[in-house]
Write a protein that binds this DNA or RNA. Structure first.
Length: 464
RNA sequence: UCCCCAGUAGCUCAGUCGGUAGAGCAGGUGGCUGUUAACCACCGGGUCCGUGGUUCGAGUCCGCGCUGGGGAGCCA
């Protein structure tokens, strides 16, 4: 394919001394003296910069003066073997062209490192840093790997709605979607907002999960997956929560809980292996700067079978641990972060899949076990980040599902369409949800979820 | 939402006992014949988050607010 320039990645990988090249990118640094200067240029195609050697007898000093950190330039020249350490090849500049200067007195990014907190405040410029270049490239590779994994296995990519009318997906607070006047909305006879006059003629919100729609498609197409934005209006202020995040939700007809677990484990291992295979340069940078144990942790998920434990067995292990937990453990309680961390990091020392949770602490759609008190749920727990996947076998029996909805006060009339799939040709089926940014935390070793998404949305912050 | 911590130069931070602020880097100028977050010298740079209070005097102590961070809850 003909391109207007050569990506620096390709120059560094395939370039040969003597070749004429044109590169375009952003200046990371310039240094040197009155005879010769060196420009480090990055174009985002890879972590590395290419060195452009500027002979002051070829390029005038005025042109060079404006080429400061952050400026965008084009460089034409001949590729040459580099006599110095640090790079194999460099470009002997014949001509430099300025696309956009960057006033060095005001450009926020310096040659030195910046704190991640500061970079969040300049999210419009942080993709130009080594860290975010690396993270965003890895993110792209991971997104593609997700599609590849499912496509290779015959899963159908399903687009579930972003705007939803069901307020009972049961996964948290929702963002309302409305075109009604915020100050004086129309009221009904009960002095409540009259949503029949709203755009959709009913109250609507941004989706918190595509699962219920995913189930509909799985019961027609067999195996499907979704991969799209998901919204939670929870006032969660942690390094693991976003108000807008991307979720992967496969849903499979004829999969029972063990099949579901097998798929989740294979899926995660595939993604980790892809990262190790295809992102090694970026991951090495991230490991060197943020997480020295990154590769050890990535490889620790690879060779070993995930530990599979029932909730009941996990509770027993926690009781016998001798640990003095802040929250004491007993059968029926929801496991706390400290409990999950103990199981994964100290007890099993590998990823753990917990199954068969008490039905009282899980969602209405999960299939009940014969014991009457647990459901066929599964949570995949990873070191350092906790729950990375949550899933279950779904209740496929109409009567059982309806009973459960009534017990949990789920308005059945709103989910008539969901119930109908159990009336007509129901089938055993299962699925799970993977938080894409949680995966990214694990893959990149970054500590804060706001640093693995380009434009984080969190309480009190929707800038950029 | 709860608990804890922080907010001082463009960035990262120091600032003792309450006495009107300092370093490194960045920036500017000059120097240097191949640098590797180049180096060396000199120079400029402050609404000490906001607000109210205590005090002769507040960056420093107290109240309230805002913002950020860590932990917890909710969850993916």
């Amino acid at each position: 394919m003909k391109t207007p320039h050569t990506r620096i990645h390709d120059v560094l990988k395939h370039g040969r001394p003597g070749q004429e090249v044109t590169v375009k990118g952003w200046v990371r640094s310039r240094r040197g003296n009155k005879q010769v200067q060196f420009i480090a240029l990055n174009d985002g195609s890879c972590l590395q910069t290419i060195q452009i050697v500027v002979d002051l007898q070829t390029i005038d000093a005025e042109t060079l003066k404006a080429i400061t950190t952050g400026a965008c330039i084009r460089a034409d020249g001949m590729l040459a073997a580099s006599p110095a350490k640090g790079q194999n090849v460099e470009i002997q500049a014949r001509e430099l062209k300025m696309y956009g200067s960057a006033d060095p007195a005001n450009y926020p990014l310096q040659k030195k490192g910046h704190s991640l907190e500061f970079l969040r405040e300049i999210a419009h410029l942080r993709p130009r840093t080594n860290t975010f270049g690396a993270v965003l490239r890895v993110r792209s590779v991971m997104a593609y790997a997700i599609h590849r994994f499912f496509q290779q296995r015959g899963f159908v990519y399903l687009h579930t709605p972003i705007i939803t009318g069901s307020d009972c997906e049961g996964a948290g607070e929702m963002f309302r979607v409305t075109t009604l006047d915020a100050k004086t909305p129309p009221l009904n006879e009960h002095a409540a907002v009259d949503f029949s006059q709203d755009f959709f003629g009913r109250e609507t919100a941004l989706t918190v999960s595509g699962q219920l729609e995913g189930e509909l498609a799985a019961l027609a197409l067999g195996q499907i997956y979704t991969f799209g934005p998901t919204f939670r209006a929870e006032n969660s202020n942690t390094a693991r929560h976003l108000a807008e995040f991307w979720m992967v939700e496969p849903e499979m007809a004829f999969y029972e809980l063990p099949d579901n677990m097998d798929l989740a484990e294979e899926f995660l291992k595939y993604l980790v292996q892809t990262a190790l295979d295809d992102c090694s340069v970026d991951l090495e940078f991230l490991s060197a700067h943020y997480d020295a144990d990154l590769f050890e942790r990535l490889r620790s998920t690879d060779g070993v079978a995930f530990e599979r434990l029932s909730y009941g067995d996990a509770v027993e292990l926690l009781k016998k641990s001798g640990k003095n937990f802040e929250f004491p453990v007993s059968w029926g309680c929801d496991l706390q972060a400290e409990h999950e961390r103990y199981l994964v990091e100290e007890c099993c020392k590998r990823p753990v899949i917990l199954t068969d949770y008490p039905r009282a602490i899980k969602a209405f759609y999960m299939k009940g076990n014969d014991d009457g008190r647990t459901v066929r749920a599964m949570d995949v727990l990873f070191p350092r980040i906790g729950e990375i996947i949550g899933g279950s076998e779904r209740e496929s029996d109409h009567a059982a599902l309806l009973q459960r909805m009534r017990e949990m006060h789920i308005p059945e009339q709103d989910l008539w369409w969901y119930l109908e799939t159990r009336r007509f040709g129901s089938a055993p089926h299962s699925g799970f949800g993977l938080g894409f940014e949680r995966l990214m935390l694990f893959i990149t070793g970054m500590a804060n979820i706001r640093d693995v998404i380009p434009f984080p949305r969190t309480p009190k912050n929707a800038s950029f």
